[in-house]
Design a protein around this nucleic acid. Structure first.
Lengths: 254, 254
DNA sequence: CTGAAAGCGCTTACAG
DNA sequence: CTGAAAGCGCTTACAG
């Protein structure tokens, strides 16, 4: 059905009147080839439209050049920007990004990692979800690097990149304060993940340090659930509920 | 440095007491293997953490399973959503997306396509920019499929997916009209690409068909350039300029 | 159904 | 610097 016929090194070698080895060397930075040989090979390759087969090269070099980006809901502003930045930087270092979408299903991330292994990715970067320890161990054991971004759980041997939530929330408060806001509300989810709680703590702490003329509230993600609510002085006051489906929002209520 | 040691089919074969062929067949849907052999192979593979090497498989099958997504500014809402939908659908059909970022530089898209060829992608989907004919011809000739999304230029042999700009702009007008808007403005870029002009035409045409009590204006993307401006009855009236850096905007001005 | 063998397109010591 | 040769991990006729 699909008869793919890319030109091979052999064809280039024949046209240039050299060995396949010479062709290979010409496309390997640092390999020893005479200028004359290189010239003839390059010329022949150009005429034929030759491109090194990265599948075969990866097989031999034991290095595919592929880095998997594992992410869910990637059209979210934060993730979209992250994915863009990552793919760009990857390209700068001559790597290439493979993008794998995950969903809410349990083994979604595990499946993604299995794909990464199948394509012998040099590394996998996880932006969403958390895979089973058994599969991450296999990756690590096989020599694949693992990068976890903003993941709560720990994975021995993986590179972890985490946001300092407490500090970030603190800065957000200061920024709002400087902008002239004097009445605040902080809406949080009831998921109570470490990240969410750290943000709340950071924001609250900063609030407390800056006087008591502030209105303060913490609410639930789902409006149907009762929400906790504090007012004035950053201490609980009266219950209320808010409409919000976003993960975490904080805004000046004044 | 990076000693990668993934388990191979040979190891699985040894542990299962069968030939490498049997292992290969077990992981090839539709291949003839006895239940007993399949069971032993599957078990051994599981224990060893074996995963078919897609690099090698792609080499033999002459089908990598890779589809390249070539796109610039992918964190833009429209593109981010498109990339997400594409990667998801690709996964459903057992393909995998390779993401390549392009920028404004001239040969950016050509380079991306060269990457696609190097990895022997089964297909390339171009969301941004337009590559040289020479390189697209090479792709096509090599048997790689090419999909162009919303590209103005034509490329014989490539699958073209285009938005019906005229129709879309028409619908936008109707939607605004139904929402109760009675005074309209249409801001356009001076780039005058076929897409932009088609949108303008569609919007204007719909406007004309719905009476003359409408205010109408077309402006330039760059506020420093003089803008064309029509008012009342959808005919040119008075020049003006507008502040806008967006590509195309239309909004009710009343 | 099964295994031995050839071959995919490359890289890399090895000997010249 | 250069080529012949071995080998990467797989698939697929081929003969049994």
């Amino acid at each position: 059905m699909s008869r793919k016929i890319f030109v091979s090194a052999k064809e280039v070698a024949d046209r240039a009147g050299v060995s396949r080895s010479a062709v290979s060397r010409t496309f390997t930075p640092g390999a020893s080839v005479s200028d004359e040989t290189r010239r003839r090979v390059t010329e022949a390759a150009e005429e034929l439209g030759y491109h090194v087969n990265h599948l075969a090269r990866g097989l031999m070099r034991n290095e595919s050049g592929i880095v998997c980006l594992i992410v869910s809901e990637m059209d979210t502003p934060y993730r979209a920007r992250l994915v863009r930045a990552l793919t760009q930087q990857l390209q700068v270092t001559s790597k290439i990004a493979m993008l794998i979408n995950t969903d809410r299903s349990d083994d979604s991330v595990d499946q993604a990692l299995r794909q990464a292994i199948s394509y012998r990715a040099d590394a996998s970067i996880i932006l969403s979800g958390m895979p089973d320890k058994s599969i991450t161990d296999l990756c690590l054991k096989s020599g694949q690097r693992l990068v976890l971004i903003n993941r709560d759980e720990d994975r021995e041997g993986a590179l972890m990149i985490n946001l300092n939530d407490r500090q970030a929330a603190r800065r957000a408060f200061i920024a709002l304060l400087r902008a002239g806001c004097r009445s605040f509300a902080f809406a949080n989810s009831e998921a109570m993940t470490p990240s969410l709680m750290a943000r709340e703590e950071g924001f609250c702490a900063a609030g407390r340090e800056h006087g008591s003329r502030l209105r303060w509230s913490v609410s639930a993600r789902r409006p149907t659930r009762a929400a906790r609510c504090w007012r004035s002085g950053f201490s609980p006051a009266k219950s209320g509920r808010m409409r919000s489906s976003a993960s975490t929002i904080c805004w000046p209520a004044g």
